Simulated assay, not measured.
Amino acid sequence: MSAHEAVEGLKRLGLSSYEAQVFVALQRVGTGTASDVSRASDVPRSQVYGAADTLAERGLVEVVEGSPKRYRPVSLDTARRQLRERIDREEERAFDHLAALQGEDAEDAEDGVATVQGRHALDDRIAALVDSATDRVMLVAWAADHLSTAIEEALRERATAGVTAVVVTESEALADRLADSAVQVVVAPSNPSDGVTGRTLLVDDATVLLSVLSEADDPDDPTETGLWTAHSDIGHILAQFIHAGMMYGVESERGWADSETSFDF
């Protein structure tokens, strides 16, 4: 990693440009005066003092008193811990303020069609939508890693509560994971969606989520993008089409299996 990349990374962790440059320069010189740090960086000597003192307040730099004053960095393990603790504090403070600002009806105000980007964000949204089911929920999740722990727990809880829960997958491992639950699993011998590897969720009669995977950026770590809608006119329309398509697919795939098995969906 170049010095520039190190500086940019430290800036993303909350340091100012001068602070980041001073800290990186101190990794080179070890212990040095403001003049030493200035020569090892692009920071003017007059600006080194303030940046180094701020770093000292943050526990990232030690000040060696003398004439002239010298500075030395703490160990990288200590710096990592200090920065992580600071980020954790700022995160907690920010979200406490956000929670205080959030209206009681904020969740109920969700309408229209929303886009969600990223596997983790979609996992959280799917789990929340499953948790809201009062009648039925069907999830198409072809791969085992499409079912996060939070989604699995939500499906198990809803199924135990009497909600009809069906998972369609081609993963035997996923079926084994849910074998001890009230969730009904349909194991399809192949993905009938012609290469579409995203997820489809239907909750009750008006909540729909659709996602697709894109390997354009990194085939080994594809990104997932989804859209969802709940209790909207388009949600009602999509729900009818998706429900019909899902059930047709389930019945078609079950042609090779036990035709006596039925799903109350």
Rank of each mutant, 00 (worst) to 15 (best):
A3S: 11
H4F: 14
V7T: 01
G9W: 11
L13M: 13
S17F: 05
F23C: 11
V29L: 04
T31C: 12
G32W: 00
T33G: 07
R39D: 06
S41V: 03
G50Y: 10
T54Y: 05
A56Q: 03
E57K: 15
L60W: 04
E65D: 07
S67G: 09
P68S: 06
R70W: 03
Y71M: 02
T78N: 06
R84L: 15
D88C: 07
E92I: 08
A99Y: 15
A100H: 08
D105Y: 01
A106H: 09
D108W: 01
E110K: 10
Q117E: 12
R119W: 05
H120W: 05
L122K: 01
I126S: 05
A128F: 00
D131S: 12
M138I: 13
L139P: 01
A144Y: 08
T149G: 13
A154C: 04
A154T: 03
L155C: 10
E157F: 08
G162L: 10
V167T: 01
V167N: 01
S171K: 00
S171R: 01
L174H: 03
A179T: 14
A179W: 15
D180F: 15
S190I: 11
T197A: 09
L201E: 03
V203D: 04
D205P: 06
A206K: 00
T207E: 02
L209F: 03
L210K: 09
L210S: 05
L210D: 05
D218M: 08
D218W: 05
D221F: 12
W228Y: 09
I237S: 09
F241R: 10
M246I: 13
Y248W: 12
Y248P: 12
G249I: 14
E251A: 15
F263S: 07
D264V: 11
